[in-house]
Amino acid sequence: MKLRDFILRRLILAIPVVFGVMTMTWFLSYIIGNPVAMYINTNTPASAIPAIRRAHGFDEPLYVQYFLYLSGLFQGDWGISTSTSFRPVTEIILLKFPATIELSMIAMIFAIVLGIPLGILSATHKDQKIDHIMRIFALAGVSMPIFWFALMLKHVLYFQLAIAGLPHLPGGERYTLIRYLSFKYTTGFLLIDSLFFYGDFTLFVDALLHLAMPGFCLGYLTIAIITRMMRSSMLEVLREDYITLARSKGLTERVVIYRHALRNAMIPTVTVIGLAFGSLITGAVLTETIFNWPGLGKWAVRAIFSSDLAAINGFTLLVAFIFVTANLVVDLIYGVLDPRIRFG
């Protein structure tokens, strides 16, 4: 009962945030330039311009245009992407979103599966050799820009190995195009499609190999952030009185750390994970461009270069939604982890 109220309250609180983002993106895109410019080129006769203006509602007063924009959003009309053969933005998002999500998920799995244990290891072996190695590893992750790291990774694990004729990781795309040319997606998630709809295990492995390098590259920053966060919050929790109490009960060090300390130390870490998930989607812009990944990021980059306002708006809105959702999920996980928050 109380959990349901908690979820409802957080959902209601998310509405003004989403609404604010919608308004902001609209205003900002309006400032950039005349929206009509998007729909004409040098061959458009000048006499046709008023008609175009009218067709898109650009001759209406601002508040009417704002209303039209909002009602369009709610009806699923997010505009036409001029840089992608004039196809509707929603259609392209639906088409490319799974690729980005798949990549981000893999990055997130890398980050959580590696970051949390590494952080714990680092905290429990504070100031020992393993802790120093972890800290260098994490510092490197935080300091290296994604585009540089991605290029280096690709250069070594793909180009150099390929030139040397050694087994190497694929350098781009979601699967080996030559081998599976006519692949038709069902859900859009290649890992799911290949395994459950086609039952093609070699394709599944191929997809995994293609995900490895961009996934790790995108996740490295998050691994580093999670490791550092986990280490510091674990160290803090291990100094708490309830850890002394747990030890005084005669519990083994393992139980003290993994049962009593971990759950408390996860609370601040979860915040970071939630925020990181949002930035993974934006981080994908660079990773996808370098690894030629047919996802939203690559599409957004092209949209920016060709001032495709509708596409940029759509991408911005989507990222905002993901941020809001990720934070909502974080709030919910908080409630599960920490009983003090549930009723607050």
């Binding site: 309830y242 030890r247 005084s248 009960k249 005669g250 759950r263 920490d338 009983p339």
Partner: peptide
């Protein structure tokens, strides 16, 4: 020592606000 702690010799600490684990 683990079999002595909490079983043969146990301890009640000073501050009831900070000693119970808040999440259990």
């Amino acid at each position: 020592m683990l079999h002595v702690r909490g079983k043969r010799i146990s301890i009640v600490f000073q501050d009831p606000a900070t000693f119970p684990n808040p999440v259990f």
